[in-house]
Nucleic acid binder design. Structure first.
Lengths: 329, 329
DNA sequence: TTGTAGGCGTTATCAC
DNA sequence: GTGATAACGCCTACAA
């Protein structure tokens, strides 16, 4: 490995002069600088990240932690993060799995963005307490070194639920996510609030898993007990897709016999026939904001928690209730 | 930051004793070891990755480089990589974008797995020449420090093409990937070889992009010049999905008017109606093998290039040509 | 403008 | 078994 020492030797100067030259310090002659740079290039010199991190006590790397590498939501989210990171001179690395957690306490990364329930609150608070900087996207957690950038789950679930009610549906299924999912819990809370203030509607909860398979199982249940038009709110799009696919094998039609709405507006939904109604938000912006907030904390700035707003996308997968249509006639 | 020096002071021993104790050396009393470990825990000691990397000249981290974070192929692939890495005491980080390339020469990672055309061959050879270890999944590149783990693109494309021919189709469209994609070029070569030895078939190439939008555009073209049943080989599944979705807006039916086959067998295809015919291979195995090979090179082992084998999945998206059915009657 | 020297946190080679 | 001590490659007062 070629180090500044080798350059110094070859250039006949001291290592500090080399360091100054390489770092663009003004306290070095243009002449010596260019000589040093030439030699550095000639020797294929590349600075050693470990040595620099050790000395400067920062790595200029931000880590984002995901539960797994699957999942359609992540593409734009990560792109948004990377864009902001790179613009600010940081690199972004994506990690997954318990083993990788060490990167934060061992200071391989300067800060972490968390979207992974494999991190417990206790663990995150422990790191925060030791002065590591963290942004959480998947929970509420209060600490001076932790910033929250959360989706407005309640608003989204409220929009979706009210939409179904407004369309006149009287039997509404809710397909939930995993029990420990913050998103699922939040969305469910909002659904219940709407349910509490709505009369004449039958509410049925089906436990799901935020995966396609959960949507398929839900579809089977809905088909099994079908008595007339029903509405279904899958708490994420992935389950809605599974639901659709299972239903496509039957004679029931989405938007006619079964009215379906999802949550997330993942890319694929725009390709579905009929277009899936869902809750939209900018994944890119979410990621970008998360990175921004983290970098601000890293620079010692004070930041407030942030919220990502959502909108309703009306798709043909939800039509007016037949009953209501009859009434209108 | 608490270092071994702090532990040494508190335990009344030297830093070398602490280091030995922490690293499980046998040359330290059980008594002193347990005392040291207790103090380490008490002080919340965490080793510093940069210092260790600097000294040991390795980071125990492997980096995988992707063109972008989207793409349905990546989930299982990355999981396969991670599994092997973790089992061997390495961590896996996912990187994207030109800025992140520096991680390799700066020795932040011990080796790289490349699936990203933002790396030029020249760049990779330069790194290999400087003794960095690399596994490539997306090109042929010969160097002692570079190992190839490539998909058997030619076999896959041959299987797909021959399947269409066997089913009696006489007008076959090929929707390609980007010009600079190794996969696209390889697959296309195989198609041409089949075409050269097949008579009475009209071959039509449509330039695509490996994305859904490319499939949609292709569908429009096929619809526009429709005169009778046609077969389409989309060189990846993502385009096939775009193709299907566009066609779903018309009265043409997949498997009847248009016969469609893809490549990759991404998860979603199994949910499609009708089931998409495609070329299958184990993404998890591909990733696992890539990691294995890289770790072997890192340990100084000699390795041969590897190949990932593929199989044909017959789906209802490809039926017999109507013409042939007539002949058979 | 350049050089000297100390230190970042670890590991590893010596002595004792 | 334990303790000095010298690296690893880089940065940065401070001195010259």
């Amino acid at each position: 490995m070629v180090s500044i020492k080798d350059i110094a030797k070859k250039a006949g100067v001291s290592i500090s002069t080399v360091s100054y030259a390489l770092n663009g310090s003004s306290k070095v002659t243009d002449e010596t600088r260019s000589k040093i740079l030439a030699i550095a290039k000639e020797l294929n010199y590349v600075p050693n990240a470990a040595a620099r991190s050790l000395k400067k006590r920062e790595s200029r790397i931000i880590g984002v932690f995901l539960t797994d590498f699957k999942g359609d939501v992540y593409g734009d989210l990560l792109d948004g993060m990377k864009e902001v990171c790179n613009a600010q001179g940081y690199d972004l690395i994506v990690c997954s799995g318990k083993q990788a957690h060490r990167m934060l306490p061992e200071r391989m990364i300067d800060g972490a963005i968390i979207l992974d329930h494999a991190f417990t609150n206790a663990e995150l608070l422990k790191y925060a307490e030791r002065n590591h900087k963290i942004v959480v996207l998947d929970r509420e957690l209060e600490h001076p070194n932790i910033n929250q950038v959360l989706l407005d789950n309640k608003a989204g679930a409220t929009l979706a639920t009210e939409f179904l009610v407004e369309q006149g549906h009287k039997k509404i299924y809710i397909v939930t996510g995993p029990d420990d999912s913050f998103d699922s819990i939040q969305r469910m809370k909002a659904v219940k609030m709407v349910a509490d203030r709505t009369e004449d509607v039958e509410w049925i909860e089906i436990p799901g898993d935020f995966k396609k398979s959960g949507g398929e199982r839900a579809a089977e249940r809905v088909i099994g007990e079908y008595t007339g038009p029903a509405a279904v709110f899958c708490l994420n799009d992935e389950m809605a897709i599974g639901f659709c696919n299972r239903l496509a094998e039957t004679d029931y039609r989405i938007g006619e016999h079964v009215h379906l709405i999802g949550f997330d507006n993942i890319e694929l939904t725009s390709y579905m026939q009929p277009r899936l109604a869902t809750i939209n938000y900018s994944k890119r912006k979410w990621g970008a904001l998360a990175s921004e907030q983290l970098i601000k904390i890293l620079s010692g700035e004070e930041v407030e928690h942030e919220r990502i707003y959502v909108t309703l996308i009306k798709g043909e997968s939800v039509g007016k209730s037949a009953r209501q249509v009859n009434v209108a006639r």
